[in-house]
């Protein structure tokens, strides 16, 4: 039995360095590089440590090249870490033991494992045999996945005839037939329309609830994070920038609140209350320093004929942008100081 107290995923000081070939643009440089290859070490992941509890859903946030996918690949056993420790369900992923591979899955939004020319059902059947899924369990799981993902009309058509979203649903089903306990999902909603994104999201949440599976998810869509992940890990240049509640991330990195007021008179001067972000008929949006929010709202309500007032956190995209901007500024500051 899996010890419920020990983490499902344990990562300590995880690092991954790549050495990349480099050359200047142009034909001369191309010829030169034949004789002497210039290589440079690039840190993809530079010392990450975190734990994930069984049944938890955590989201990895970070810009392109931040090291999210590299981290997931190391956790699933596709990449050897340069240094550091990883334990997933007590296994060392890079050994790729069969017992380990049967308990995890990796879904990459831009890769596919389903046979292109055959119906998804045939690929499912192949997975049943490869993962040694008992027939009863297979039937149960398949029925469940068909119901949750609404696959009934899709699985008998050749995969090449499916739309991107339909194919993704089948990919997800194929990846879950063996009922993995840990799911690594790398951009599972990439390129999908809003409805399909919502569908996949709802499915992940439901799967997690029903099976208590641990989910590690990367995504560019904040909606994915907001809907699924109570906890997020923000990675920037391979470093851990933040690990905690999504709400706390907003609280920590955004020094502002957004105050939206509705008022009958459009002529009122609002300049004394905060930075005016938007103003349209009967409605104004103000950005107010977080510490002054209470005082400003009190003044607004006392001074003006306001019919409605709401205080919101800024949109999470904005917060993330600020996180990265802040980090960039700090690192340039540090370089300048040296």
């Amino acid at each position: 039995m899996q010890d419920t107290l020990s983490p499902a995923v344990r990562v300590r000081e995880l690092r991954k360095l790549y050495s990349v070939h480099e050359r200047e643009a142009g034909a001369l440089a191309a010829v030169k590089s034949l004789a002497r290859r210039q290589t440079r070490e690039v840190t993809a992941v530079g010392g990450l440590s975190f734990d994930v509890a069984p049944g938890e859903i955590i989201g990895f946030l970070g810009s392109n090249g931040a090291g999210k996918t590299t981290t997931l690949k190391m956790l699933s056993g596709l990449l050897y870490p340069t240094s550091g420790e990883i334990g997933v369900l007590g296994h060392t992923p890079s050994r790729r033991e069969r017992a380990f591979l049967r308990r995890i899955t990796l879904v990459m939004g831009n890769r596919n494992q389903l046979g292109w020319d055959i119906p998804a059902l045939d690929s499912f059947e192949l997975n049943r045999v490869i993962y040694r899924i008992p027939p009863d369990q297979y039937k149960r799981t398949l029925d469940e996945l068909i119901e949750l993902l609404d696959l009934d009309a899709l699985i008998r058509k050749p995969v090449r005839n499916l739309s991107l979203g339909e194919r993704m649903k089948c990919e997800v089903a194929a990846a879950l037939l063996h009922q993995p306990q840990v799911l690594f999902l790398d951009e599972p909603t990439i390129g999908l329309d809003v409805t399909m994104q919502r569908r996949i999201r709802a499915f992940i949440a439901e799967y997690n609830r029903r099976h208590g599976a641990t989910v590690l998810l990367t995504s560019h869509y904040m909606a994915d994070m907001a809907a699924l992940c109570k906890r997020v890990v923000v990675i920037h240049h391979g470093q851990l920038l933040f690990d905690g509640d999504l709400a706390a991330l907003v609280g920590r990195f955004s020094p502002h609140k957004t105050v939206i007021i509705e008022l009958a008179d459009d002529g009122v001067d609002l300049r004394g209350y905060g930075e005016i972000v938007a103003r349209e008929e009967g409605r104004a949006t103000l950005r107010v320093p977080k510490g002054e929010t209470a005082a400003v709202t009190a003044r607004l309500l006392a001074d003006l004929p306001i019919s409605d007032l709401t205080v919101e956190d800024p949109p999470i995209e904005e917060v993330i942008e600020q996180v990265f901007a802040q980090e960039a500024a700090e690192s340039t500051g540090a370089t300048a100081a040296v």
Partner: peptide
Amino acid sequence: QGQFSPLLLRPI
């Protein structure tokens, strides 16, 4: 095409 990775993650 990056199609090798899924094969590597199968328990066979």
